[in-house]
Design a protein around this nucleic acid. Structure first.
Lengths: 202, 202
DNA sequence: GTGGTAAGATAGTAATCAATTACTATCTTA
DNA sequence: TAAGATAGTAATTGATTACTATCTTACCAC
């Protein structure tokens, strides 16, 4: 059981590639990640990458698929079994922050993709990810209004935008400080303000 | 009075360069803006740019200086003469959104710079910009607590983070939709939630 | 064991980029 | 108005990039 076997089956090699990109994005500008850098990180020659991906774009697509799958699974799991919609939103928020803290390259890659002018497969993947994220939020917000936890006059769309924006803000602060741990510390404090903004007057 | 004189004094040429970069960033990924594209946009040959800037990094530095100067001036002007700290914050918020709507390339460039691993002059400029922005917010928040407009138990740091994050969220939504006008429409709705989160119970 | 094949190494290619060079055109001023 | 300074052109450079062609090795069914 060599921990670093030279030869890997194609699907395993693809998985390793994706993980390498995620890791690299944690410490450098995603748009500056070259195929050579990816290969070096996984102890492979640059040309060998193209045995498993038709081109670089396909690598990015696979990476964003990985992100979408894992992030949605994570927030779904976190909210599972929580009755209170507001508590479920908080759990989603915290697990999202946790995910980002574990993979600091993720928000960078997502923003980097959204910046693109052309509509790449990776960009479309990010767009559907955020769309699905929004759907989950809207369901919770509606449920929260019905249960009386959230203000009946709350603007659903604005509340969803602000939820994601709140996370964005935390991420940006950590990018500024170069300190991921900071997010963990600040997350509950920032969410407290958000919660106060959407909950019904008691 | 030729509107496009071939020869320009160096300082005017530098100003035109900065404006070109800001304009280009509005419609394409800032990290993909080449010196050739900048030159073409201003009807100049690529090499001529280096008569006015020692290298490309210096161009970016000049651009971010332009942004910092204009944005801070704009939000300062918007809050001027407003007695209520909360109203001043709202004015700052709206004028910031307006600035971004006028120059959609600006948030892209700022995020692009923050993503960099190395500490470039442009990145440092963005960092000090946000720092100064934060100082203004903290002053207003303190004033708001003193006047009773803001909740006395409010977490200042979290409130400042969320203020900027709220703008981030709006910008991201407009990037997603590819529709800048949307920001204008959503800004008051999103700020309403934020305001509810920080103001004192009445 | 052996042959076939999947995976990797090596060594390229063409394109693109920032930056530089030699030269020219246009202003400014003594 | 001559001379120097400033600004621009056009062509080229070396470095870097994604991608490819060819050769080599490891693995696995039989």
């Amino acid at each position: 059981m060599d921990p670093h076997p030279k030869h890997l089956p194609a699907d395993e090699r693809r998985a390793v590639t994706v993980e390498s990109v995620v890791a690299l994005a944690g410490s450098q500008n995603p748009s500056e990640i070259t195929t050579a850098a990816i290969a070096k990180h996984m102890n492979l020659t640059q040309g060998a990458l193209f045995r498993h991906f038709p081109n670089k774009e396909a690598i990015w697509q696979a990476v964003m698929e990985w992100v979408a799958e894992r992030l949605l699974a994570r927030i779904d799991r976190s909210a599972q079994g929580i009755e209170s919609p507001l508590a479920a939103m908080e759990a989603m928020f915290m697990s999202h922050i946790e995910f980002v803290a574990e993979h600091p390259g993720v928000p960078r890659m997502m923003f980097g993709e959204l910046q693109r002018a052309e509509s790449t497969p990776a960009k479309r993947m990010v767009q559907t990810l955020i769309q699905r994220y929004g759907e989950r939020l809207h369901r919770l917000i509606e449920k929260g209004k019905a249960s009386g936890e959230l203000s009946p006059s709350l603007d659903n769309e604005a509340a969803a935008t602000l939820f994601i924006g709140t996370i964005q803000g935390l991420v940006m602060q950590s990018l500024l400080a170069g300190d991921v741990g900071r997010m963990h510390r600040d997350a509950p404090r920032v969410f407290a303000i958000y919660r106060r903004g959407i909950r019904s007057a008691q």
